[in-house]
Nucleic acid binder design. Sequence first.
DNA 1: CACATTTCTTCAAAAAGTTTCATTTTTAGT
DNA 2: ACTAAAAATGAAACTTTTTGAAGAAATGTG
Lengths: 251, 251
Amino acid sequence: MLTQERQSIIENYVNQHEVCRVSELCDLTETSESTIRRDLIQMEKNGILKRVHGGAQSVKNFSRDVSQNVRFNLNHDVKIALAQYAASNFVQPGDNVFIDAGTTTYELVPFLADIPNVKIITNGVETALCSLNHGIKTILIGGEVKDDTHAVIGQTALSQIKAMNFSVSFVGANGIEQNGNLTTPDPEEAAIKAAEIKQARRAYVLADSSKIGERNFAVFAHTRDVCVVTDQLTSSQKAALPADINLKEAK
Amino acid sequence: MLTQERQSIIENYVNQHEVCRVSELCDLTETSESTIRRDLIQMEKNGILKRVHGGAQSVKNFSRDVSQNVRFNLNHDVKIALAQYAASNFVQPGDNVFIDAGTTTYELVPFLADIPNVKIITNGVETALCSLNHGIKTILIGGEVKDDTHAVIGQTALSQIKAMNFSVSFVGANGIEQNGNLTTPDPEEAAIKAAEIKQARRAYVLADSSKIGERNFAVFAHTRDVCVVTDQLTSSQKAALPADINLKEAK
DNA sequence: CACATTTCTTCAAAAAGTTTCATTTTTAGT
DNA sequence: ACTAAAAATGAAACTTTTTGAAGAAATGTG
């Protein structure tokens, strides 16, 4: 059996079962624990699943509720640190803040609750709910909802965003290339992200260091158009970024 | 059983029961008290629940969290019965179903998951989320979100609704007057409800019997324009309704 | 205060994870 | 097609984490 084939089987199984143990995967793929563990380590690094003691856990939000999803996410602590830094440095009282759908940007919400008179505009269903629960005035973008990321996308969403102006936008990214391209897998989401940035006076891309050097199908912006917020970077990570990048390292 | 699995079970159980004892959780997960205690300590540290002498307590803010609130709602069982009746009698495979924001109509979602190829369009944030979690294709209406009911309202929402046609709409009501007026307290929500009904080929108002004879500020439709779905009524309740009403009593 | 629970502490057994290494399988170059 | 280098695999020894039990300490109740 090919490595890719096996990992694909593992991915499906984990996503279908939410959690599973190593032994199950051994039976499933007829390989040793060693191999499965090596696969899991590699797959965790790629963000396909999360390793837990005894097995692996899905990072996709199918049957779980929101709060669980957010907690079980990869690099959760880093995301919170980014969010806190971004919220306290780049948001003013009275701002109209656009928050992109996604787990990193989601973490911004609690920190915005302390800033007077902010309004949140978002295309993330969970983000909207969280914002409401924090008593923040909330505007939701309408349209089709993607079943995996729960992001609102499509033409309706796009034209609604284009009819508004934001003080500041916070956008998530799946990859930052050496040449400065910011990327995400889904072209539909990319179109939305591009509009979010265009309609904002100031635009910030929140991306933890694992996204550096990653490359996805759809380009939605270039580093010269935005400010990139990340965690502390090693020198080799910095070398993998464009020289003229407008970068802020949290803390 | 894996730690994550167990803690997930504990979280659900505690949230559903508000408080519970350690021994209950032992039975539930078939583990020792030691393990449960260790889980509770860890979960308390993560803010998932609160430990109290003898067990654990939910920390969810019920007044704000609608989706949790739903099950503690007044007449919860009646609402489920209405929803099941409505879903199984008035929805066809392939329908585009509009579901109004609100706790009664929210209950429709699980029953629609079994009907092939339905699409849900809604202005309820929790309803959308629930729909997604059931794997149903979902379209969300955009606009301002009301902080108490979490219903999407306003001009943007209105024009988005008017740009669509639904096979069937399910709308909630706060009051049904003797003269056939269907009412709700907020005029903004009333405007939305009126549009939801207008754009649908078939429109159903879901209202349990406690709404009969109630009168609210804003009228959004008349009984002659819709089919009203309620639970079993007494003869005096029937007498408080217009004579020409198109009424369906669940079960 | 006395009593019954509940919680905390400690410890050893069991389960899971890591590291290392010899062996097999792939890959790439000639 | 052949061979050497690289990568992947499975097994073993060893480390860490998790678990349940038993006794000590703390807590709530009448």
